[in-house]
Design a protein around this nucleic acid. Structure first.
Length: 832
RNA sequence: GCCGGGAUGGCGGAACUGGUAGACGCAAGGGACUUAAAAUCCCUCGAAAGCAAUUUCGUGCGGGUUCGACUCCCGCUCCCGGCACCA
């Protein structure tokens, strides 16, 4: 036992403590994951979404990494072999913009930012395995992405096609569908323009069904732990719908108009057809019709210029062509309509105004026929003022009358199928991933364009196609497109002069597989090492902002499956999904709005660290709100967190108290109970839900109890030390530097503090006597002390001795008694 | 419109599978220590009534189930996030 002199009080000095421990940790590589197969510990992979090196860490980063670090540290203390890596999502547009502004190549800016931000991360004392640091703009990283891409070309999963694509003028590049939000660029918020361009795509649609099916195993109902919100968003994005493709012949022509519908039961109600402006039938009709040609042109621009597409007026024009109804043989006019999307289904629809709101509106506007063919059970549904969109019973449908919608769908589909005029079809909203970008600061697409051989994949032996890092963007098109040294190359097939593809990959390509690369970060013989994958994958806990719910999280799931299917690993051994559990953290707000540079309402993490230390900053971000909720930054709250650490610090003064007297057995027992209850509560927070705000509150309660504890004898002192030790260890995932320093004052080495989690002594939780709440008619009327395993009759008898209970029982007859063990006794009475 | 999530003191938020509503912290008020300030410590802190013990009301609104409802069910209101002419 140490003597009082050793515990003389030094004030808590965050700066010197943090510097001291960060140095020690770095020296001991204590945070590195162990790849040694002899290591028997169970593995745990904790990952936070890696940062884009924008220049400085912001509070959102701090929150993200503190959450992850708490989990990683807890798991280490629980005896897991933890992989907790970090890296840099280093390609991207801001680097080019900065390059233009500063007249320096983007590489310089990027690497300088990485150095700056690495320093900031280290200042936060985050327990990363720095030996696995990844920088995605380095050839040693992106070469494998290029490698995978040529494999995908071989498998027919990557292809080039001319298509209508989303173009962002300020960013001077095309965008994937996922990167268009409200008709505008996800990055610069400028409305996108439609353009027809030849671009590279990856067939994510081939994986639609898998991506949808595997969402099931991620949902909480199936033992996974992805938020319902994210699962719902992905499900909706994939947008599966089952229906029928129906062929309509065109009058006086050999042409066939194919449409997709989910409501074949309404087929008899078709009164016109509508095709997209880009539909071949429309284009053909426009050849001899200038008015129509003008309208088609207008549609192409309007649909993209209008910010609010939803409220856009429905417009259309008759093509002057008729379609023949496959059942009745009647003719219906074909229209072009601005609400029909070329990219969905077949780019054409059968219009049933009586049973579709959109068709109804269009029909009213252009005075088209409205024919009701479905009614409700009572038969009184009408379509006078609005479409009747429910399913129901068929009417005015000849042979199909009186069938209900479900039967009609089957019967009509079968009828069509027999005659070769229709077939069941599954349609997805998801479209192929457009991965070409007309940007410089990205990974080159490994393709060579040859006049004779066409687009030829760069042979594997010639990889990587290295991006020249010294080019200077000027603001217009990519400097890569003008870099002769890069572009001119011999065709790998015929050997004649050819040109490299000047487009680069969408930067979401890099972030789609980095989680798998960390497992074998420096492997130079393969994209990933299969053994490492089997050891570590999947990520046990992924933490990041919800803004990536569809973008990154969908692409990464897809990429994982691609990597599996090119044979990099066995999905049954490694897992078919990359992220087992997902925690989506809320934003950091200041005065109710998101902290952002553009709003100028940021709080610099550095300032806070300098003022209070990183432990205080860490503690506050975890305590102020539950992880998934938004967190309001409050300086007074930060001070409160700092005060708490000081309070713990001062608990050590109590070690100097003389203990010459007898113990008060009850208070010793109570203290031990609080200690072990706290261990239970804090452990529970880590095991499910990550309610660190509650866990920290529990630690504050323990601190209060320790502070209030009157230590008189040796048992008391032992209980106090036990509580203090447990507290220090439980603080370690949150405020590691502080905890290590406190641990040292208790005589622990660092491993004892950051490698062992306290265990609950069940015996300490037991109480001989408990406070039992006595309710009359469900209302609390008294609290009595009873033996812990009291039975109902004894409890009732004891309750009746209590004067305030007596008062309420006066003149009453006991009807029923309910005892909830360990909690309460409810007496139901009625007037006698 | 559709999907998801919410609504609890002055504020952020607690409340295990239905069982003491408001833990913990912030803010506020009062007091102690101090020449003073800071720091620290103690007390009060949902509303109403009362000197008090105590009582009544109280978890967005209206119903219901139950001995007992912040929690479950039915019907709403409002807020936040996502998607949105998807055939």
């Amino acid at each position: 036992m140490k003597h009082s002199k050793d515990h003389e009080q030094q004030p808590y000095n965050a700066q010197s403590i943090e510097t001291k421990w960060q140095k020690k940790w770095a020296e001991s590589n204590i945070d590195d994951a162990c790849d040694d197969i002899s290591d028997q510990r169970e593995t745990y992979y904790c990952l936070e979404m890696f940062p884009y090196p924008s220049g400085n860490l912001h509070m959102g980063h701090v929150r993200n990494y503190c959450l992850g670090d708490a989990i990683a540290r807890y798991k280490r203390m629980q005896g897991f072999n933890v992989l907790h890596p970090i890296g840099w999502d280093a390609f991207g547009l801001p680097a080019e913009n900065a390059a233009i502004e500063h007249q320096r190549p983007p590489a310089e800016w990027t690497y300088a930012n990485i150095d700056q931000m690495r320093g900031q991360l280290k200042r936060l004392g985050l327990s990363y395995d720095w030996s696995r640091e990844i920088t995605t703009c380095k050839p040693e990283y992106y070469r494998w992405e290029q490698w995978l891409f040529i494999k995908l070309i071989e498998k027919g999963l990557a292809y080039q096609k001319e298509a209508e694509v989303n173009w962002c003028n300020p960013c001077h590049t095309v965008l994937a569908n996922e990167q268009v939000e409200d008709g505008a660029c996800w990055r610069c918020k400028t409305p996108v323009v439609k353009k027809n361009l030849k671009q590279w795509f990856i067939k994510i649609t081939d994986y639609a069904e898998q991506l949808l099916d595997d969402l099931e195993q991620l949902s909480t109902s199936k033992g996974g732990a992805w938020p319902d919100k994210v699962i719902g968003m992905q499900r909706h994005w994939i947008g599966k719908s089952s229906g029928v493709e129906i062929s309509f012949n065109i009058e006086h022509s050999d042409e066939v108009l194919d449409i997709f519908t989910t409501r074949p039961d309404t087929l008899m109600g078709v009164s016109y057809m509508a095709v997209a402006a880009a539909h071949p039938l429309a284009i053909q009709a426009a050849q001899n019709n200038t008015e129509l040609a003008f309208f088609l042109k207008e549609c192409a621009t309007i649909s993209t210029k209008e910010a609010d597409i939803a409220t856009m007026e429905k417009k259309g024009m008759a093509l002057g062509v008729n379609a023949i109804h496959p059942i009745t043989g009647e003719t219906v006019p074909v229209w072009v309509a601005n609400f029909v999307l070329m990219a969905y289904g077949t780019g054409a629809v059968m219009s049933v105004p009586a049973h579709d709101e959109r068709d109804f509106e269009f029909a009213k506007q252009y005075n088209l026929n409205i024919k009701q063919v479905i009614t409700n059970r009572t038969g009184d549904a009408n379509v006078d003022n609005a479409a009747f969109t429910d399913t129901g019973i068929l009417i005015h449908s000849a042979a199909f009358n009186d069938l209900d919608s479900e039967q009609a769908k089957q019967t009509i589909t079968a009828w069509l199928a027999e005659r070769g005029k229709g077939k069941e079809r599954i349609q997805y909203r998801l479209r192929d991933w457009l991965i070409s970008r007309q940007r410089y600061w990205g990974a080159p697409i490994p393709v060579i364009h040859c006049a004779d051989c066409g687009a030829v994949a760069v042979p594997e032996k010639d990889l990587p196609v290295v991006l020249p890092e010294d080019l200077q963007p000027t603001g217009g098109s990519s400097p890569l497109a003008e870099c002769e040294a890069f572009l001119n190359v011999d065709c790998p097939q015929c050997g004649r002069a050819a040109q490299r593809e000047a487009d680069t990959f969408d930067t979401f390509m890099e972030s789609s597989w980095y989680m798998n690369r960390y497992m074998s970060a420096h492997c130079d013989t393969a994209m990933v090492d299969t053994n490492a994958m089997q050891r570590w994958a999947p990520v046990d806990q992924y933490i990041g902002g919800v803004e990536h719910a569809v973008l990154h999280l969908l692409y990464a799931r897809f990429y994982h499956k691609l990597m599996r299917d090119v044979g990099l690993f066995d999905g049954d051994k490694v897992g078919h999904e990359p992220f087992k559990n997902l925690l989506t953290q809320g934003m950091v707000l200041l005065d109710g709005t998101k902290m952002s540079k553009s709003r100028g309402n940021t709080v610099d993490p550095n300032t806070i660290i300098t003022l209070y230390g990183c432990d205080t900053a860490r503690l506050f971000t975890l305590f102020a709100a539950p992880p998934e909720k938004d967190l309001e930054w409050e300086e007074s709250g930060v001070e409160g967190a700092h005060r708490f650490l000081n309070r713990v610090w001062r608990l050590f003064e109590k070690l100097n108290i003389d203990i010459a007297n007898e113990d008060d057995e009850k208070s010793v027992k109570d203290l031990r109970r609080i200690t072990h209850m706290t261990i239970e509560k804090v452990s529970r927070a880590f095991e499910h839900g990550f309610a660190f705000n509650v866990a920290i509150a529990a630690q504050m309660e323990l601190t209060n109890a320790l502070q209030a504890f009157e230590m008189t004898g040796t048992a008391g002192k032992a209980a106090f030390i036990e509580g203090l030790q447990a507290l220090v260890k439980m603080l370690a995932p949150f405020v590691p530097h502080f905890a290590c320093e406190c641990g040292e004052r208790l005589g622990f080495d660092q491993a004892a503090v950051i490698m062992s989690w306290p265990t609950v002594d069940e015996a300490a939780l037991l109480q001989d006597e408990i406070a039992l709440v006595v309710q009359i008619q469900g209302k609390k009327r008294a609290e009595i002390m009873v033996p812990k395993d009291v039975d109902q009759n004894t409890a009732l008898a004891l309750a009746k001795e209590d004067p305030s209970v007596c008062k309420w029982l006066q003149g009453m007859q006991v009807v029923k008694v309910i005892l909830v063990k360990g909690r309460l006794l409810n007496i139901v009475v009625r007037p006698a």
